[in-house]
């Protein structure tokens, strides 16, 4: 049973945290990092508009596929051309 207007939080705010939305399901192409080519420069981390690249500055970056929407900006910006966009097959 869906909530009535007296129970729903005001302002259209969702009653679960925004971290619960796994927007990664939206993507058609997924970035794959070739760690042989990756120079650990951090460009992908800087440029990702969704904060979906995990990087601590020391270990090489990882894509958080739960939130990556597959926009391809990281692949476009990577100076070492270490990122390729691969079609997701489900």
């Amino acid at each position: 049973m869906k909530k009535g207007w007296r129970e729903v939080p005001i302002g259209g705010i969702c009653w679960v945290s925004s971290t619960e939305y796994k927007t990664g399901t939206w993507k058609t192409y997924a970035p794959r990092i070739d760690y042989e080519k990756c120079t650990n420069c951090g460009f992908c981390w800087f440029y990702c508009p969704d904060g979906a690249i995990r990087w601590n500055g020391e270990e090489k970056p990882k894509v958080d596929y739960d939130y990556c929407k597959g926009c391809g900006i990281c692949a476009h910006e990577c100076p070492a051309k270490a990122i390729t966009m691969e079609l997701e097959v489900k």
Partner: peptide
């Protein structure tokens, strides 16, 4: 406390949110 402001509401809850505005 991450919150989502302004998400898609559609026919599921848009009407309820508008009803709240009248009350406010």
């Amino acid at each position: 406390n991450p919150l989502t402001f302004g998400p898609l509401d559609l026919f599921d809850y848009y009407f309820e949110h508008k009803r709240q505005q009248e009350e406010a």
